[in-house]
Design a binder for these strands. Structure first.
Lengths: 120, 120
DNA sequence: CCAAACCATTTCAGTTGCGAAACGAATATG
DNA sequence: CATATTCGTTTCGCAACTGAAATGGTTTGG
């Protein structure tokens, strides 16, 4: 038995959080976009387009477009690397932090419900 | 303090699972599609188009299209309700069960990693 | 100091998704 | 019966995303 999270409980946690997220009328990000956002915020910098593309195993243009979307949303910003101006460094914003914080609340709440409902 | 899952741990769990999901070369489902799939498998039947649309707070055509995609993928199937032939009952398939089982593994594995990495 | 290598972006053609409105089929209501 | 209502689906125009290939800047190396 896994210690923290059985298979069904994990799925139900994911379901509750995902349904809550879908029901929200906000900017609905694709899986890639959200994965990118989370990677930038939870993984040690610096973050370049090439590095992110490798990490997510998608093409570079896909990262560029996801950055367009996320920076247009205000969740991320680009900064040219001063030491090598070919590089673009992806950085966090206050707005992105707030958004992810709300998303974390949503997940933890869903986890609480899943425990309460499916529990022993 | 939340008992099972702190905010940062929840985000990191989500990140790991989502990145793993994005990296996999499989059918990449949208958030809606996955939410629909999970709802059908983890919520008591019967499931109609109208009911699912209300549950996810999206339009009926959106559900129809998601069903097209998911049944084309073999994860779900439609069956006309014999007692009221206007209704469409959405049902599970073996293939969908297998897919969700693999997805659950992915989440539990990510949960284990998140505990191991970020833990005390 | 000029060419090669590298980085991110843009362009291109094609796919997929969306909401609103119109639609045919099935059931309920008078 | 005829009409209204309720299903799910289809059509329409439009927006967003995809990978591959081409482009414009920047840095490195001979």
């Amino acid at each position: 038995m896994p210690p923290g999270l059985s298979g069904t409980a994990a799925l139900d946690l994911w379901r509750r959080a995902l349904v809550a997220s879908v029901r929200r009328d906000g900017p609905d990000l694709s899986a890639r976009q959200l994965a990118l956002l989370l990677t930038v915020y939870l993984t040690p910098p610096p973050h370049t387009v090439r590095g992110l593309a490798a990490h997510l195993a998608v093409s570079k243009p896909a990262i560029t477009r996801a950055l367009d979307r996320l920076s247009q949303e205000g969740f991320l910003k680009r900064k040219i690397d001063p030491s090598d101006r070919r590089n673009v460094l992806v950085q966090r914003t206050v707005r992105g932090s707030v958004h992810l914080s709300e998303f974390a609340d949503l997940v933890t709440r869903s986890a609480g419900e899943a425990m309460g409902a499916g529990g022993p």
